[in-house]
Amino acid sequence: MTEIIVVTSGKGGVGKTTTSASLACGLARTGKRVAVIDFDIGLRNLDLIMGCERRVVYDFVNVINGDCTLKQALIKDKRIDTLFVLAASQTRDKDALTAEGVRKVLDELIADGFDFILCDSPAGIEKGAHLAMYYADRAVVVVNPEVSSVRDSDRILGLLASKTERAEKGGTKVREHLLLTRYSPTRVAAGEMLSIADVKDILGLDVIGVIPESPQVLSASNAGTPVIMMDESDAAAAYGDAVARLLGDESLPMRFIDEPKKGFFARVFGG
């Protein structure tokens, strides 16, 4: 049984691609077969974050147009055997995607026995974002703890409830999860950032993960390593927890959501 999960947000720059890469790695590490697809046609980034940009020969649009087979376009990850990347086209525009084309690729991946298909949505609410969410079974809505991101997420949640295949066919609705990124407990305590409770309250959804603001996210991106693979990073541990919750472990407590306690020396000498 294949599950299609869209990673979306509405707003740009909140961490969709970072999240797609880390969730894909995290799921694949448990032995699941995972394909992660970049829907951001014309602005492809996922291959960079996954560290496979030099191995892209064929892309998503090539598969849709029948220029190559899906097998030729899927890039096998070098770290995890069960993880595959389908890159976006950098030279086309978003009109290259069609609903039938996307369905065909998804069907082929399902027939191939993948456990999870992650769809990394572009920002905005136009065609790319629409097609990324259209066939989803579940949605991970990435949100930063600030008002414009929360507003855009609300809009996206509205679209998930109305503009998806599940919504249009009247079946069970798309399961929605919130994932907070760039969360800084210190700034929340100072009242500069919305708290987890604020975001939950405004969007009326439960949070599947809280990723703390961490310099390692940027250095991981630059190194082409999904941040979840960086050992001894808070962000990696938090993504690990989010993957476990995605797989159904609801008992895990949230970590890295409280202001760090200052140690003895920090208290004496000022931290």
């Binding site: 855009d152 609300d154 949640l157 969007l203």
Partner: peptide, 8 residues
């Protein structure tokens, strides 16, 4: 019974 989201 569902939340009325932004834009709806």
């Amino acid at each position: 019974t569902q939340p009325v989201r932004s834009g709806q």
